[in-house]
């Protein structure tokens, strides 16, 4: 029971985006994908949820090649919260979350009592139980993000893929969401920006740069000052907390000769 990405290469519009990326997520673990803008994080995730087809390599779910599954089979295994959640016209939060049950539905089959129960539980898990009847276009960005997570939870899939799940969320809701996701009995792969949040919650990190894996391992192995300088071109101070997880503070790199510039000014 694991998710494996093997030597995935992806070309978009003639440009190589991913060059032989491999990644493994053990059952029940949480893997964070970090890296600078344009390093291929989201593209890698989108290969994992079948929206992009890799030119080489493949993604395996429990040993089965993802490309050989139907969309429906894949949807029963994989739930996704994408980065941009378009707001559909005239839909309530509850209706959105109930759509998470679609992979299990035959044609003409309506929503059962059980589906409603699952949707209600998903909504209370993300703290939106009071907003079930609200229209999606009246929600704030953060509420919409949590509604999208509730929809993914209602899918009851063993794998959960998240693209910058804490985007739009304030600090309280960021921690709440990560706690919730961490407590789920599922395997999680999440694209993240925040080093500290990633270090706190992920079992393993995969640092991407220029479409390749620059480093992979535990947060303490990946988040070192040298690596951060190489990949992000920023200085970083890293401490380890009592659990051995890194705490990172980033500082701008002073360009060489900046003193002489300020003297001239």
């Amino acid at each position: 029971m694991s998710l494996e990405v093997e030597q995935v290469a992806l070309v978009l519009g003639g440009h190589p985006v991913l060059n032989g990326v491999s990644l493994q997520a053990e059952e029940g673990s949480m893997v964070g994908i970090i890296g600078p803008n344009g390093s291929g994080k989201s593209s890698l995730l989108r290969c994992m949820y079948r929206v992009l087809q890799p030119r080489e390599g493949a993604v395996f779910l429990d040993g089965r090649n993802l490309e050989q599954m139907t969309a429906r089979q894949a949807a029963q295994k994989l739930a996704v919260v994408a980065q941009h959640n378009d707001c559909p016209m005239d839909m309530t939060v509850e209706e959105l979350v109930l759509l998470g049950r679609s992979p299990y539905k035959r044609a003409l089959e309506g929503d059962s009592r059980e589906d409603r129960q699952i949707a209600a539980e998903a909504l209370s898990a993300v703290g939106l139980e009071g907003l079930a009847r609200r229209r999606l276009d009246t929600l704030s960005g953060g509420e919409r993000q949590r509604a999208a997570l509730a929809r993914a939870l209602a899918q009851q899939a063993p794998y959960l893929l998240l693209d910058e799940p804490t985007n739009h969320l304030d600090v309280g809701h960021q921690l709440q969401l990560m706690e919730l996701v961490k407590a789920l009995p599922v395997t999680v792969v999440a694209v993240m920006h925040d080093f500290n949040l990633a270090a706190m919650y992920c079992d393993r990190l995969c640092l991407m740069n220029h479409g390749a894996v620059a480093a992979a391992g535990t947060p303490a192995q990946v988040l070192t000052p040298q690596r951060i300088r190489e990949v992000y071109q920023v200085e970083a101070q890293v401490w380890l907390d009592e659990e051995g997880r890194p705490v990172v503070r980033c500082l701008p790199v002073r360009p060489h000769g900046s003193d002489s510039v300020s003297e001239r000014g």
Partner: peptide, 23 residues
């Protein structure tokens, strides 16, 4: 009318519809 669920999924957008099992 029989396609109501698929039509609802389509309004979520191509990517989201795909991740919910629709082609």
């Amino acid at each position: 009318w029989s396609q109501f669920r698929s039509l609802n999924l389509l309004t979520l957008g191509e990517e989201a519809a795909m991740t919910l099992g629709l082609e």
